[in-house]
Structure formats: C-alpha cells, structure tokens
Amino acid sequence: MGLQDKLNDLLQQGLKQVEESVNLESINDVRVKMLGKKGPITEVLRGMRDLSAEERPKVGQFANEVRDQLTNAIDEQRAKLENAKLNDQLKKEAIDVTLPGNSVAQGQPHVIQQIIDELVDLFIGMGYVVAEGSEVEEDRYNFEMLNLPKDHPARDMQDTFYVTPEILMRTQTSPMQARTLETHDFSKGPLKMVSPGKVYRRDTDDATHSHQFHQVEGLVIGKHITMADLKGTLEVVAQDLFGDELEVRLRPSYFPFTEPSVEADITCFNCHGKGCAICKYTGWIEVLGAGMTHPNVLKMAGVDPEEYGGFAFGLGPDRFAMLKYGVNDIRDFYQNDVRFLTQFDQKG
C-alpha cells in the first residue's frame, strides 16, 4: 500500500470519526489522535524520506491537503457542537416574556403646562420673546391701561378679586401688553411677545368655571403689522394645536383693548362641522380672541398709534386642554388626581 493510499485511508477514517463525535470531548480526542505529533499522519510523513525526488512533493502536497481537510472538518464539527450546547443552555433560560416589566419612575408634565409649552415654543419659533407678569396686578394695568376705565361695562364681564381698590388678582394676562409696551425699545425692532400665566376670576368653581385658570397673551407691535398678519398667526396657532385640516373662521367680537376685534373658531374636530354636542350643534368651536391693538392702549403706554400698530391675542390653555382631550370638568386640572396627571405621557 503506497503512502498516498495510506493517507487516503486515514482521511476517510478521520472524517468518519469527526462525524461520529457527539460532544466537545470526543471531537478534541479526534483532533489529538489524528493531527497530533504522534498521530498517524505525522507517521506517514516520516516515511516520505523513502520516496523518490519526483514523488516526494506530490505526496507532501497530498498529505497537507489531508491535514487541512481534517482540520476543517474538526473545526466545523466543533462549532456545530458548541452551538448546540449553547442553544441547549439558552433554551433552559427561557422566560415568559409576556410578564410585565418593572415599574420605573417617570413624572409627567401637567397637561396645561404641556399646552402652554407647546404654544410658547411655537411663538418662540416665530421670533417672540416670553414675558411673564405678576399675578397680583394693579387696577391700572389690568384695566385702565387696556382702555377699560373704572365704569366700563366690560368690567362686569370679569368679576374681579380685589385686594384694595387699586390692587387685584389679575383677571387676564393682558396687563403684560401695557407693561411690555411701556418698556420696549422700538428702535431695536418690533415688539413680539407672549405672556403665559395664571389668571383669577371671582367665580364659583363648577365643571365649566374655575376661579383660577390660565391664559397666554400675545402682542405684536411694529411699523408694518397688519390684520392679515393676525389672521395668518391665528391660523398657525389653531392648526398647530388642533390639526391643519381644520378650517379657521374669524368673527367680529369686542374687546376694549382691540379694534377691530375678532374671535377665531375652528371647525369642530369631533363632527367636522356637521354639528354635535361638543360644538353645541354649530359645527364651530371658539378657540381664541384677538384684534388690532386699540390706539388708546398704544397712546396710554406712550407709543404713537400713527407710527406703530399691531395685534394682540389671548389664548386659553385650560379650554384648549378640555377640547383637545375631551376633559369635561375644569376642576380636574387643579385637583391633581395622580390617575389624571399620569395619563398625559405622550412625548413627541
């Protein structure tokens, strides 16, 4: 039997042993037995010195091939066995992945805060600054500077918590109109501000009334601010909050500090204009009040109404939250039931 045949025999024998190895120990044994320094292949190669010069390289090459083939087979089988062992183990580690995960601590921002932040961010994106006023105001700024002198009938519409005849809980965020107008340096460009905050009315708390609620006031005053700009701005706000497929309609309204005054309605998002209980069967939902700043307001704040003009608007975050989420009772916002607060956890 020639060396070549011997090698061939060894190869077949080795491959058979590899195939028959069922665990890592036995495959290791095969490797040591077949390829080790004292193994049969080494033995065969030792016999090469008896071969002729022509045959020697041929047999040498074949011997290497046999060795490589066996090495590969062993590696392959070992990998297979290792894998099987791991899979076995992983199988044992299997758990019920439908069991609930651990609880984690995450607090939620108040839904009204979310609405305010969303509005504020929207306006910041349009170049507005944020000016927060005092919750305890002077009658002068809350009313008089807004074209609401002492006996003005519109004062009846806002029942006021007075502290003294001159000091009150602000009934609106509008005092910041007068205050920012007084201090703004118009040589540095137009005034564009929003003022979010708490306001107070002398009301009995029930499902639709609260003695405390929130407003976001806006004011834009410059040399070239138009009613068309107001309309465009209100559309941006309404559509940002409630969806851009909704139509916005402006209606004439009345506020002492704006003229013309308008109220903006959006198509009822519940019935899309057909009429339902939410929109009181009108198809429209009132979302905000606005108007072109009254010349008296500018004058009283020392701004020349001939040169400067612009618009103001007032937004009601409580109302927005009620509309947006279908909250039926405004008191829910201020009682802070954790089951209520934790629901508003949508991010992004």
């Binding site: 170049g127 601010i225 068309a228 700009d229 465009g232 941006v236 209606r251």
Partner: peptide, 16 residues
C-alpha cells in the same frame, strides 16, 4: 374676514 389674506409678520432681526 374670509377675504382678508393670511400672512405672518415680516421677519425681522428679532430673536425669540
């Protein structure tokens, strides 16, 4: 009011 155009205040160098 439906016939009044919709625009936004002209951008100025104000930074909000």
């Amino acid at each position: 009011y439906d016939n009044i155009p919709s625009t936004l205040p002209a951008q100025t160098n104000n930074v909000g």
